[in-house]
Design a protein around this nucleic acid. Structure first.
Length: 475
RNA sequence: GCUCCUAUGGUCUAGUGGUUAGGACGCGGCCCUUUCAAGGCUAAAACCCGGGUUCGAGUCCCGGUAGGAGCACCA
């Protein structure tokens, strides 16, 4: 049975990289009928943002990624929030002390010069406390100093492991730090908690960002120290920007929730993000979540970073929008219509714009002219492709006025039939008749829908009024 | 600085020794058409560099170069 987990720290929002990590973990579990778990990694007391656990729930729900076990969904492996597991970490850290795989360190943070800043940093940090005698340890305790617990990296040695994305990785123990496992405040570090929890929660596949690749040997050493079986590893390349820099909320790059607010469909974002670093092995690109579950294969994940392209997301969003049923599109479009638009038949309008909408937030600009006729120049009535001139436009508009006034059944079909007949009887191309009408109705060079479609939505009175206005410009 | 990783058109990618190097986005053109979209067709555009191995290398090896990541009482 596959068991995977998504283990975010509660920072307040779901960024794109996290979304993909969650997605891949979910897909890996689900394609094998396994269990997907949500675990909250809130072991940094300085970095907890209130409400942010809620943001994680919301993000996952929005994405359609449902977890089988989590803080609010017990599956017998809880608690699923690390801050509630402190005694567990303590217990296991003590075991490591007893077995000699870890040691107390009484150094204070201030004692450690900031070597990493100088660029002169030495690898494989070995703390002096590594060699404290039991008496010295006792003496420090008696002094009342709160120790941290550090991992004792066995030396010399080399550790290797297999990663489903990166293959065989080997790292010399001389590169590995005697890192802190348990902080002096009693909280574990990620380095410790992830190992204990992944084992206790019976995680079979650890799926996480590539930044953990080089510290994985340290975790493996821990598994060994406990006599536990290692999980399978799937490290993910990063998602970056097209200029090669990394996505950052601080620089204004949108989170998952932001993208949804910007009018991208959650399912389109999920689809797009799935394709950033993975492909199904054939040429399909359009996927709904269940299809991703079926198609996903962790062994087809790429090794190199992928740049997030808004162009392509936008296209894919359009694909998803077009794939929606007219009813579904309408209900999603509804919140994006400008105020006062309920005077129109919005259902009809939605039908018109669905294929022309690549992003829901395009809607206001797309339909704005229905609400208010834009200011435009008479020159708009001249159009080569439709063989329209100012003269022909004037003639047609004049002819159309009484024709429209006489129509009782104000529908696209009737309107089209009437205009078509006008074109035939007057020897005009259909386009030549339609152009001035569409122009007068929209006041724009382009519009979502042709002359009769616009007229049907605008209604008889307003259509007539706009034709009149157009005629004035042509006088 | 040390270590690990990566490298196919502008971008996402297929490719696992022999291909006219395939697809997608974007971009140009054409068709369709009631303007614009959508749809269809089509063009331009890529194997980082240098050595090897091999009859043959985008594919394997080595070395460069470039980029990314890690080296916290952060995750």
């Amino acid at each position: 049975m596959f068991r995977t987990r998504f283990a975010p720290s509660p920072t307040g929002y779901m960024h794109i990289g996290n979304l993909r990590t969650a997605l891949y973990a979910y897909l890996t579990a689900k394609q094998a009928d396994g269990i997907f778990i949500l675990r909250i990694e809130d072991t940094d007391q300085n970095r907890n943002v209130p409400e942010s656990v809620q943001a994680i729930y919301n993000g996952l729900r929005l994405a359609g990624i449902e977890y089988d076990e989590g803080p609010d969904k017990d599956g017998g492996y809880g608690p699923y929030t690390q801050s509630q597991r402190l005694p567990i970490y303590k217990e296991y850290a003590d075991k490591l002390i007893q077995s000699g795989h870890a040691y107390y360190c009484f150094c204070q943070k201030e004692d450690k010069p900031a070597l990493e800043i100088t660029g002169e940093r030495v690898q494989g940090y070995r703390d002096p406390c590594r060699n404290l005698s039991p008496e010295e340890v006792k003496a420090k305790f008696d002094e009342g100093i709160l120790p941290v617990i550090r991992q004792r990296i066995p030396e010399p040695g080399v550790s290797s492991f297999f990663d489903h994305v990166y293959g065989e990785i080997s790292i010399d123990h001389a590169q590995l730090d005697d890192q802190v496992l348990l902080k002096s405040d009693g909280f574990p570090t990620y380095n410790f908690a992830n190992v204990v929890d992944d084992h206790l929660m019976a995680i079979t596949h650890v799926i996480r960002g590539q930044e953990y690749l080089t510290s994985t040997p340290k975790y493996n050493l821990l598994y060994e120290a406990f006599g536990w079986e290692r999980p399978e590893y799937v490290h993910l390349p990063h998602i970056i920007k097209e200029d090669g820099s990394k996505l950052s909320k601080r620089k204004g790059d949108p989170s998952f929730e932001d993208l949804v607010r910007m009018g991208y469909l959650p399912e389109a974002i999920v689809n797009y993000v799935a394709l950033l670093g993975w492909n199904p092995g054939d040429e399909r690109e359009y996927f709904l979540l269940p299809e991703l579950v079926a198609a996903f294969d962790m062994n087809r994940i790429n090794k190199s970073n992928a740049a997030f392209s808004f162009d392509k997301l936008r296209w894919l969003n359009g694909e998803h929008i077009r794939a929606l049923s007219p009813e579904e599109f309408h209900s999603r479009a509804l919140p994006f219509y400008p105020a006062g638009f309920d005077r129109f038949d919005l259902k009809q309008l939605s039908a018109l714009i669905q294929v022309r909408t690549e992003n829901l937030s395009d809607i206001p600009a797309l339909v704005g002219f229905f609400g208010e006729l834009p200011v435009y120049e008479a020159g708009l009535f001249a159009h080569d492709k439709s063989k329209s001139t100012l003269e022909s436009s004037k003639t047609i508009l004049q002819a159309v006025r009484p024709l429209f006034a006489a129509i009782n059944e104000w529908t696209n079909e009737t309107l089209f039939a009437v205009l078509k007949e006008l074109a035939v009887s007057q020897g005009f191309k259909v386009g030549t008749v339609m152009w001035p009408i569409r122009t007068a109705l929209s006041g724009q060079e382009t519009s979502p829908g042709g002359a009769t479609e616009l007229a049907a939505i605008l209604g008889k009175d307003e259509s007539l009024r706009r034709i009149e206005l157009g005629l004035e410009k042509l006088r």
